[in-house]
Amino acid sequence: MPDVIWEEPFCGEGNSCYRIGVDGGGNSYIAVAGREDAYLTDSADALRQLIRDIKAGKADHLLAD
């Protein structure tokens, strides 16, 4: 696993908590809090756009249980 610096968990409604992190190479990471070993990585711009789309309601189906 790369050396990732994780931010504090972000918890939305319910019990879904996520963490966002970065490494020294400029890559960004997102993971479910407590499962940082199973992360998604991409460029910072790609993950920023994913977060914008989720907040805009374009990806609600991704967050359903």
Rank of each mutant, 00 (worst) to 15 (best):
P2N: 14
D3H: 14
D3L: 10
D3T: 11
V4N: 01
I5Q: 15
E7D: 13
E8G: 10
F10V: 14
F10D: 08
F10G: 09
C11I: 06
C11Y: 10
C11D: 08
N15F: 03
N15S: 06
N15T: 08
S16W: 08
C17W: 03
C17S: 10
C17H: 04
C17I: 15
Y18M: 07
I20T: 13
G21C: 08
G21L: 02
V22A: 14
D23T: 05
D23K: 10
D23A: 14
G24K: 15
G26N: 07
N27I: 09
N27F: 15
Y29E: 12
V32P: 07
V32K: 13
A33T: 14
R35C: 09
R35I: 05
R35M: 12
E36V: 08
E36Y: 06
D37L: 00
D37F: 04
Y39L: 11
T41P: 09
T41M: 11
D42L: 07
D42Y: 14
D42M: 09
S43Q: 04
S43F: 04
S43T: 08
A44N: 05
A44L: 03
D45P: 00
D45W: 00
A46T: 04
L50G: 00
L50V: 01
L50S: 00
L50D: 04
I54W: 00
K55L: 10
G57F: 02
G57L: 02
G57Y: 04
K58H: 05
A59N: 04
A59Q: 11
D60S: 07
D60T: 11
D60P: 03
H61L: 07
A64W: 07
D65K: 09
D65L: 05
